[in-house]
Simulated assay, not measured.
Amino acid sequence: MSDANRANVFAGSWRLSATRRLWLLTALGSALSGCGRPDPPQAAASREAVVLAVTPYAGAAPAFVAVARGYFEREGLSVTVQHHGSGKEALDAVLAGKADVATVAELPVALAVVKGHPVTILATLSTQSDHAIVGRTDRGIWSADALRGKRIGASVGTSGDFVLDVLLVRSRLSRADVQVVDHKPRDLADALVRGDVDAIVTWEPYVADARRRLGDRAAVFPSEGVYDSSFNLASQRAFALQRGEVVRHLLVALLQAEDLLKHDLAASESIVAQALRKPPEEIHELLSRSRFSLSLEQHLLVVLEDEGRWAMKNRVVDAPRAPNFLDAVYLDGLAAVKPRAVTIIR
């Protein structure tokens, strides 16, 4: 081969190698540009839309954490948050078709089921002993026995209503011995401070608010050792049956929130303090009273049945017979993501 031919072959080889090198460098640059970055979030248009009704309650902390940390979005959900003053109001939004799921204590669920509503609990988020009667000492209420003949503010149809009867029975009193005045949960402390009622029965953070505002005129009779409430995620049964995959994604996101609550309390307190608009030190106390663990335990079924009987006996709800509360729990969702947490016997 002549020197001229060798030069032409060499030039062609060099041009081909340069083209390959350019392609390789471009591909390498594209690969490196994504290193160390998280995968792009799922497009909003492709996420499953869910409306979540929440309450200003520390027991709902997993929901607040999941929203703030984006855990729902990671699970392919687009969650719209509704704020309600009580779990009963949140559940009413679900029953009215204005929300898909609600954070709610077990009693409003029990009452709804007795009334014939197809409500089901997807998981218990937390359990706590945080209900109490707060009385005014300047009205002679130094002990629970002194409640006889007094006006007691309560939110009828809520767990506070049930706790009132439980604490009255412990003091050998009945509902006939007191005058119950119905108030929304957020209005109870105001009614007590104004003197419209002599005592109130409620839960945290309303107990702490009433105690703080009354100062040394407050006498507090807690439910600890008598009644532990559960705070739950609930929906209509059709939602659970028709959108089972969405339920599982909701629960996975809440499990991530549960993990943060257990292992990074400082971060969790900051999120819940912002959600409840409370100082961090108060949130620390509220969260310390709650036990966060997604579950569906046999004890929940027992409590629902007890509350259903109480509601029927005291004419809180008119119903011809007690329902089957096994229909009020949806087991498949949690069994798929945290099977050992399901202890309800089918």
Rank of each mutant, 00 (worst) to 15 (best):
R37C: 04
V246K: 02
A58P: 11
K98S: 08
G85D: 04
L111C: 10
A43W: 10
L265A: 12
G195R: 05
W203V: 15
K278Q: 14
W14A: 15
L52C: 11
A66C: 07
P108E: 15
S86E: 03
V166C: 13
L24I: 13
V134N: 01
A253T: 07
A93K: 09
L260H: 01
A112R: 08
L168W: 10
T137A: 13
E281V: 09
Y57G: 06
S155N: 12
A146S: 14
M312Q: 08
A253E: 14
T202G: 03
E281T: 10
R346M: 08
R37H: 02
L304D: 05
V113R: 15
P339L: 05
A96R: 10
L25Q: 08
L173P: 04
D196F: 00
G34V: 04
V163N: 04
A49R: 07
P280K: 15
H84A: 04
K338Q: 09
V303M: 12
A336T: 11
E89K: 11
I121F: 02
I344A: 00
L214R: 02
G244F: 10
E282K: 13
D100V: 08
R217E: 03
Q256P: 00
A61S: 13
R321G: 08
L294W: 05
L147W: 09
D209W: 02
A110P: 14
T55M: 15
D209C: 05
K313Y: 06
V181L: 03
T137L: 06
L25C: 05
T137E: 05
P40W: 10
D3E: 13
G12Y: 14
G225I: 07
A53S: 09
D3I: 03
F292C: 05
V303I: 14
P222K: 01
P56S: 09
V329Y: 00
V65T: 09
R291A: 12
S143A: 12
A7F: 01
P323K: 01
E245N: 07
A144L: 08
G140H: 03
D92S: 11
L32Y: 02
W142E: 14
V134P: 02
S2V: 02
